[in-house]
Write a protein that binds this DNA or RNA. Structure first.
Lengths: 210, 210
DNA sequence: AAATATAATTAACACTGTTAACTTGCAAAA
DNA sequence: TTTTGCAAGTTAACAGTGTTAATTATATTT
């Protein structure tokens, strides 16, 4: 069955060709500039060929969104060496914010755009695996913090949403230009840092009081 | 100069016609279904007529975004009677979340979409007045809390961003379907309420410790 | 070599925002 | 009263978008 194997391999190669082209357009021109026709032009195939390898555009954007999660994981590569869970939490927040501001297009796709979630709806395994994995790491960290009385106890899901919500709030307001209309541009980054610091101080103080 | 006045009035009437039609489409079919052609169809003018009254589509979306802010203000109408600033803060957060979940299209336009901010760039007064006004009310509340030692002291801008960031994070993750892929749908609302409660407890405890 | 299966294409549909050029109707000047 | 000029509104077009049905070309199997 050598030829069936080769065929499968070729199919995967074209698939990769499409994804590479999408990626190139995506990082160079941003999310909304990625179109099926431009992808096809780049790989020198007709636009309809793309539909032989992907169900629709959302399906392609889902794959790009997965790449984004791999990139985020790279940011956190050295994080698990940190013993103090509260310090780890802080670094996690810093990395998250840094990732968002340095890769706004990826962030957009991972946490703002609806397209990847729509692709998920049409899949067999319709659970958001990437998001779940990332959230679990946050939950583990928070659980450890609670165990050691470093943050106030509470429902782990609710607390995780709170912390995630806070950093996501900062990043998404920043990359959607809500801050630069309110404070001067060069003040945004230091202010976000201050914001995170204040939050950490509050968390710490509340735990000590408990 | 009676005729010039009448002309001006007629011009304003067509303008209102366009906005009403946009609004109708917007609340009935959502943001991405609003198109210049559909607006024109609805008011029985040609599509290009719209461009005689608005610079571009962003310009129309900006007006809708303003209506959203007026709607949000309605939610907070009875808020200023509350004396205790910490309780006021909590209710403000609850109202914000409720507004977002009950009016996801408006929320989208006000805090997620880039279109209204792009319209702002091409305006004489390119400050985000609506956002600034809303944020100032939050800042006033926080300043009062700090004064009375009800929350931990810190840079007022940074703290405001933190609090806003948190509630915006929750709402935007919710309306962009990030929660329902992680927890069951009917658990989202109670979890968000729990999330806010935990946050308020943390704020309170941290203040007392100070 | 002929039949079959698969890969890729062309053409089309129904949309989108936006601009240039043209036509109509009405108020003001000759 | 007639002519001029301006503003409102229109048509046609450009350059795109995602997506589907029908068709052609290619490669594999019989």
């Amino acid at each position: 069955m050598g030829i069936a194997e080769r065929k499968e391999k070729q199919k995967q190669e074209v698939r990769k060709l499409i994804l590479d082209a999408s990626m190139k357009l995506f990082v160079e021109e941003g999310f909304e500039k990625v179109s099926i026709r431009k992808i096809a032009d780049l790989i020198e195939y007709s636009p309809t060929t793309v539909y032989l390898y992907f169900k629709d555009k959302n399906d392609i954007l889902f794959e790009l969104h997965e790449m984004g999660f791999r990139k985020l994981a790279e940011y956190n590569a050295t994080l698990w060496e940190i013993r103090n869970p509260l310090l780890r939490l802080q670094k996690m927040g810093e990395n998250y914010i840094r990732f968002g501001l340095e890769n706004p297009q990826f962030y957009d796709l991972m946490f703002i755009q609806q397209a990847p979630m729509k692709a998920l709806d049409n899949m067999i395994e319709c659970q958001w695996k990437s998001g779940d994995e990332a959230l679990n790491k946050l939950k583990d960290c928070l659980a450890e913090c609670m165990e050691k009385n470093l943050i106030m106890k509470g429902d782990i899901n609710a607390v995780a949403m709170t912390i995630w919500g806070m950093v996501h709030g900062l990043v998404s307001l920043a990359i959607r230009d809500r801050f630069e209309k309110l404070v001067s541009r060069d003040q945004i980054m230091p202010m976000m840092q201050q914001s995170l610091n204040w939050m950490m101080n509050v968390l710490e103080a509340a735990a000590e009081k408990q």
